[in-house]
Each structure stands twice: as structure tokens, then as C-alpha cells.
Amino acid sequence: MVKNRLIASIIVRDGRVVQSEQFKHTNVIHYDAIHAIDNFTRWSVDEIVLINVSRDSSGQQKFKELLSYVTRKCFVPITAGGWINELDYGLSLISSGSDKILINTALYENPKMVQQLIERLGKQCIVASIDYRYINDAPIVCIDRGEKSIGIDPVSWANQLDSMGVGEIYLNCIDRDGKRKGYDLNILGEICHAVSIPVIAFGGVFRWKHLLEGIQAGADAVAAANIFHYTEHATKKAKRFLKEAGVNIREPRFIN
């Protein structure tokens, strides 16, 4: 059986690692992405997601350079995304060493480009990011870094993306982002049971038990960002906790 995965998400703005709270990225974490990746992989993280949250598309080139630099010594799978608004840029992230690309806004605004990326790279390379927030108690998908509602609920959107042919879903409830309350388990569970592709839960992890709750809700992989930056041996400890709780996960160990 394929194992559940623990994923470290690294959020960068203008080449620097930042903290995220409800999509406001104010706090610069004082070390660079290469050190974060180096530590997490040593502590047996299963996968890395690197997201560019720069305020405008001018950060594309710099992000690509960062990606080339960090992937030279990263021997676990890495997904890169943020500001993928052109076919060539999406393809260039793969040739810069990324294994998969994360797409959000273009899924809605430029599905033709997404289709071309699927054809060129194969569906397993395309991770569909879904951000949603509660508006009048109803979960609604938002694009453009969470700023623009598209008026569709996340479960229907996940089903549409599955039919569109993406390879994975990366699910984030904006209200939970950086709020330390754990994942939004109801929507997560619904989507995991609705789609045929793997689902990655993200947003709100503050305790290791939040990761466990995500897996119990049906997530194939669980991701977190902020929490991993502030704990020594963080990803190894998180995996140890999951393993002891009976989760089928790759052995936590120190890997040189």
C-alpha cells in the first residue's frame, strides 16, 4: 500500500521564507529556503511544496532561480507554484528542477493552458490548489491569492478539477490558514471521498494531532508550513507521532 505523506510547505516572497496567516505574509522567517529544505529532508519529510506569494508577477524569474538552486540538493519530490499564468513559465518550473507544479487561479481563468500543461507533462505533474473561505457560512472557492470569489463550493470544484484531469488536490481553507485550529475536516473529508485522485490537506496545523485528524478524515497527504519552522527536528517528530498513532508512513529517521 502506498503510504500517507507528510509535506512541508515553504512559502516565499521575493526569495525569502515568510509566515502565512490568512494569506497575509508579513513575518519574514530569518533563514533561507535552502536551509529549510535541507533540515526538513534530513528529518525525513516526504515531500516539499514551494510557493511563491510575491505581490506581483515580477517575482517569477527570481523564484525560478531559487527553485533551480534548492533542487540541486533536494532528493525528495518538490512541487513549485505561484504565478503560473503562462504555459512557458509552467514548463520552465519543471525544467528548473521541480517535479510537479501547483496551479490555482489559472484553473479557473485559463483552463486551456492547464489542459496544455497536462498534455505536455502528464497529469501526475499537475497539482490543483483550491483555496476557499466561508462567506455567510457557506464555503466558497477563491482565486487570486484568496481575493476573488468564483462562487463555487470547494467540493463541486474538486470534482470538476478531477474531471479536468489534474493529478492531485492541495486543499486550503483560508480561514484556517495560520490560525492554529487544525484543518477544516468536514470539507476535507467530503472531497477525499468524492474524488479519485490524491488529496493534500493544508492550513491551520498547530499540533501534531491536527495532522492525524487530516489523515483520519481521508487525506492522502498532510501539509503544514509555519509550525515546521519553529521546532527542532520538526518533521521527524511529526512523523514519529503519526507512526505511533498507527499511520502508514515512511520511517521517521535522520537522513544524511
Partner: peptide
């Protein structure tokens, strides 16, 4: 073969 709902395709991850 996705013989049941727990078997997802693509087979993605560590095994």
C-alpha cells in the same frame, strides 16, 4: 486497477 476507493490512481507517494 483502482479496485476500491482507497486505491487512488496515479499511484503517488512512498511505497
Amino acid at each position: 486497477e483502482a479496485s476500491n476507493s482507497k486505491i487512488k490512481v496515479p499511484h503517488m507517494g512512498w511505497n
